[in-house]
Design a binder for these strands. Structure first.
Length: 445
RNA sequence: GAGACCGUAGCUCAGUAGGCAGAGCACCUGAUUGUGGUUCAGGACGUCGCGGGUUCGAGCCCCGUCGGUCUCCCCA
């Protein structure tokens, strides 16, 4: 026998129950997107390699699966993210797109990283973007879609939290504290690593940026404090002697978030900056409350990016949410199926048809199943030939079907052939004329 | 890319000093000639991740390799 093959490192096989989980998550993403007025798009699974070096530089190449066709000239890469494709698609359509353009996608992505918890080499990620529209309302709209999907999956403000900040507000504060403009990127990077650094290391690196003494204390206090959006961010910055005007963008976000009813999911957190250089305004991450897990989602405003890919200057805002971390969170909270486990997410048959032994019953089995299917019902049947109705009903029960239809003795009734219809929830059963079984079950199921 | 731990039945795992590879659950059959998750009896189930080495003998020790988990790097 040839040896068994293994799936490549960091990839997953989706057996039926895994697939049911994946579809469950995707369905929530898709439903939330569509309800919020977004249209679904997709692009190729691989792109020209240089599409990815435009934004991220040559360093990105090590993180990609790239390849060249045998004998070919072009180098391609499996897509590691959607934004370059989106920017390319937007730039290609130019001014013919509506304003705003609201798109979402649920593609698979590939990254040549070492897999670890919450992080694989192939994964699915929901991307939602509003293109062509600036302002706090668009930012809040994008966050509301993310929250809508999480809510649909059974999570609440007690489970997950949107941590919200704003690049411009943080830049204003940093400038106010005396950080030179050319040091801003380094300051953002330091902020992003805040939680990973020891306090001493954080203080030392802050010092390298020109912060010391009282200024450092103000900086430290600001980036470590978080405030519910419903409370006063103005108070927080005033306490650090920062003019309220510096954080006007965050103040505007409050009313936008309140208007779409998700303010109670959100906290201001000035330590959230996102590592990426291209964010220009609102930035946010969604985290499980009290978990050390990596972010469930992250995104923000990137007004310069479409232009970077050759389009007209276009404001845009979006986020990505991966299936891996989200799946871990839902699993941990018991939100992936009830008592049946993941099997609870599989489609339930409307009817399970069994033939109890006789030749006549077996002859009728497939035609009846076919009739059920033509009526639009999810019908399954036994493949076994036995008179043991107990076994067959056990099979019907394990299939989680709503009804069992037994073809057997009742076919011989003088008033005409009948089937026994059993309600598998209540256990009640009654004979029904064979000719009207499909109609009756279709009316109930 | 660097380091640590792990890999035994479909699943969860035990396996002592190197000496016949085990348990529970799940599965199949029967008790039960037509009534479902219970009970009882029986049954099937293994390249011990893979390859090599040491040994009279390896699930166990050694080397390598593949995969998983975790930390670092990175995180679009």
């Amino acid at each position: 026998m040839p040896p068994l093959h293994q799936a490549p490192r960091g990839t997953r096989d989706f057996y039926p129950e895994d697939m049911a989980v994946r579809r469950h998550i995707e369905a929530a993403w898709r439903k939330a997107s569509i309800d919020h007025g977004f249209d679904e798009v997709d692009g190729p699974t691989f792109e020209h390699l240089d599409l990815y070096t435009v934004k991220s530089g040559e360093g990105i190449v090590n993180e990609l699966f790239s390849f060249r066709r045998a004998g070919g000239e072009s180098t391609y890469a499996l897509r590691p993210e959607f934004t370059p494709t989106l920017a390319r698609m937007v730039a290609a359509k130019g001014a013919s797109l509506p304003v705003p353009t609201k798109w979402f996608a649920i593609p698979s992505f590939f990254r040549a990283e070492r897999p670890q918890r919450g992080r694989l080499r192939e994964f699915f990620q929901w991307n939602v973007d509003v293109v062509g529209q600036g302002g706090a309302k668009a930012d809040a709209e994008v966050i509301a879609v993310a929250v809508g999907a999480l809510e649909r999956l059974g999570l609440g403000p007690g489970d997950v939290q949107v941590r919200l900040s704003h690049r411009r507000a943080v830049a204003n504060i940093l400038a106010r504290l005396g950080i030179a403009e050319d040091r801003l990127p380094a300051a953002f990077e330091l902020l992003d690593r805040r939680d990973k650094l020891e306090p001493e290391a954080f203080a030392r690196r802050s010092g390298e940026l020109g912060l010391a003494g009282d200024t450092l204390a103000r900086f430290d206090g600001l980036v470590r404090a978080t405030v519910p959006v419903s409370e006063s961010i103005e108070g927080l910055v005033r306490a650090a002697a920062i003019p309220e005007a510096d954080v006007i963008d965050l103040v505007e976000m409050r009313s936008a978030l309140e208007a779409v009813g998700i303010a109670d999911w959100c906290r201001y957190d000035l330590g959230i900056v996102r590592g990426l250089a291209y964010y220009t305004g609102t930035v946010f991450e969604i985290h499980a409350v009290g978990a050390v897990e990596r972010a469930v989602a992250g995104g923000g405003r990137y007004d310069g990016l479409i232009e970077l890919f050759g389009g007209a200057p276009t404001p845009a805002c979006g986020f990505g949410m991966g299936d891996v971390v989200l799946g871990l969170l839902l699993e941990e909270r018991g939100l992936l199926g009830g008592a049946d486990g993941h099997a609870g997410l599989l489609p339930r048959p409307d009817v399970f048809v069994i033939a109890a032994g006789s030749e006549a019953a077996e002859q009728l089995l497939l035609p009846l199943v076919t009739e059920f299917r033509r009526a639009g019902l999810h019908a399954r049947h036994t493949y076994r030939a036995t008179r043991n109705v107990g076994k067959l009903l056990g099979e019907a029960s394990r299939s989680r079907a709503r009804f069992a239809v037994i073809l057997g003795q009742e076919l011989e009734r003088p008033e005409g052939p009948q089937a026994m219809v059993k309600d598998l929830l209540s256990g009640a059963q009654r004979p029904v004329l064979l000719a009207s079984v499909v109609k009756e079950i279709a009316a109930t199921a």
